[in-house]
Simulated assay, not measured.
Amino acid sequence: MEAKMLKNSAELLLRFIVKLEFDISYAQSNFDIKTVSKIGNYYYEMMDDKWLTDLWAAATDKKLTDVQIYVGSVEVMEVHRVILSARSPVLKESFGKIKITEKYRVKFEAEFDVEVVKNFLNFLYTGSLKSTDGVYQLSQLATMYQVETLKNVCQLLNATPPDAEELTNYLLEL
C-alpha cells in the first residue's frame, strides 16, 4: 500500500507540522507527528506516552522530590531539581551555586498566582499546558526562567485565531 498524496512527503510533512504547531493550539487538540524511522514507505516511532504524566505524578506525590516551591510565603509543592535544571538554564545555574545540605527552595514572587506557578511547573514536566489561564504571567515566568518553548506557546496563545479553511486544506493534503 502506497500513500497517494505523499510522493514528496518530507516537505509536505514539515509544512504540516509547522502549521499544526501554530493552528491547532486554538482547537485544544494535540497532534504528535514524528518521522524517526522508515520501513519502505512507512514511517513510525515507538514511544511511551505515559512517562511525562508519570514524572508529574511523582512530583505531586512527593516521590524523591528535592526542591520546595513557594509563591511568596505559601508552599505550593515539591518538585525534582533535575527536571527544573533540564528545562530552565536560569534554575540550573541557581542550583549549581547552592550546597546540597537539605531540600532546595525556589521562591516565586507573590505577584504570581499559585495556579499559574503550578501550570508553569506542569509545563516544565510535561511540555503541555493544563490551562491557558494566566497566559501573561506564564509568559513572564517563561521569560524570567528562559523556557523558550513556553515563551513560544504563550506567543501563539496571544496570536489571532487560525483560518479554519486553511487548516482543513492542510489536513486534507495529508
Rank of each mutant, 00 (worst) to 15 (best):
M1V: 14
E2M: 07
A10F: 06
L12Q: 11
F16D: 02
K19A: 14
L20D: 04
L20M: 14
D23G: 11
D23A: 15
I24P: 03
I24F: 12
A27G: 04
Q28W: 08
S29G: 04
S29T: 10
N30Q: 09
F31C: 09
I33S: 07
T35P: 00
Y42H: 10
Y42A: 12
Y43H: 15
Y44G: 08
M46Q: 10
D49S: 12
W51N: 02
W51E: 08
W51G: 00
D54P: 00
A57E: 11
A57L: 12
A59G: 04
A59N: 01
K62H: 08
L64S: 07
D66S: 01
V67E: 00
I69V: 15
I69C: 06
V71Y: 09
E75S: 14
V79I: 13
L84V: 01
L84D: 00
S85E: 10
S94C: 07
K103Y: 10
R105T: 15
V106A: 05
F112G: 03
F112N: 07
V114D: 06
E115F: 08
E115A: 13
N119Y: 01
F120L: 11
N122E: 14
Y125N: 04
Y125I: 07
T126C: 13
T126A: 07
G127R: 03
K130W: 02
K130S: 13
S131T: 14
S131N: 02
D133Q: 03
G134W: 02
M144F: 12
V153H: 00
Q155M: 09
Q155H: 06
L157V: 01
P161W: 06
P162I: 04
A164D: 11
E165H: 10
E166Y: 04
T168D: 09
L171T: 05
E173A: 15
L174G: 06
L174T: 09
